[in-house]
């Protein structure tokens, strides 16, 4: 039980990239996550947009996501490496009412596995769950694919908010928090050593 007493609050920051075909709802997903709102009138994304959101993973752990919401049109693919470089996690989205969007998602996942850092945490999400009546992609098909590759899988709706928090929590719980903390403290220590503090200046009159 001594553990509980010594547990200090932890804070770690991770880079997340959002990928997927145009209009599957990537921007809507981030906005639901960041502002807990949904706007039917959303502009299409040019290049990429940057957003942040913090979540409480457990009683002592706070996680900050630095999110790159990218543009989905096929040709933007050539810019994508700039966005997923050094990413700790990726959320790859498809639209459950658009068969082709799952294929696109799969090709993103392939690319991530080849090009992104080896320990990247990947989640596959099927968006627009509220449009169940227009569904074209079965849950089974997508889930089997995700399981095979060991990805987080979830069907969500940016419109109703269903499943959004869960996904980000699942991602967060798979992230190497401890590792990140260690490297961050190390880096901070280095900086402190290099920077002469004002106190030192006074005492050191040599």
């Amino acid at each position: 039980m001594a553990d509980l007493v010594t547990q200090e609050p932890r804070f770690a920051q991770f880079k997340l990239v959002l990928l997927g075909e145009s209009a599957v709802g990537k921007s809507s997903i981030v906005h639901r996550f960041v502002t807990d709102s949904f706007d039917d009138l959303r502009e299409s994304t040019i290049g990429a947009a940057f957003l942040t959101q913090t979540i409480q993973l457990d009683e002592r752990t706070t996680i900050k996501f630095e999110i790159w919401d990218t543009a989905g049109q096929e040709r933007y693919k050539s810019l994508a490496p700039m966005y997923y470089r050094n990413a700790n996690c990726a959320l790859v989205a498809y639209d459950i009412t658009q068969e082709s969007s799952l294929d696109r998602a799969k090709s993103w996942i392939q690319e991530l596995q080849k090009q992104a850092s080896a320990d990247i945490v990947v989640a596959l999400v099927g968006n627009k769950l509220d449009l169940e009546a227009e569904r074209k992609v079965s849950t089974k098909e997508a889930k089997e694919y995700a399981d095979e590759l060991g990805l987080i899988f979830k069907e969500i709706s940016a419109k109703t908010g269903e499943g959004i928090k869960d996904v980000f929590h699942s991602i967060a719980s798979k992230l190497p928090v401890e590792e990140k903390l260690n490297s961050a403290t190390k880096r901070r220590r280095n900086i402190d050593l290099n920077r002469p503090s004002t106190n030192n200046q006074e005492s050191c009159s040599c």
Partner: peptide, 20 residues
């Protein structure tokens, strides 16, 4: 060649000629 992260923030400046 490998445009640094800070550089990619300006992608949309060129693509949309500063709209938005």
């Amino acid at each position: 060649v490998n445009i640094p992260s800070l550089g990619i923030c300006t992608t949309s400046w060129f693509m949309s000629l500063f709209i938005g």
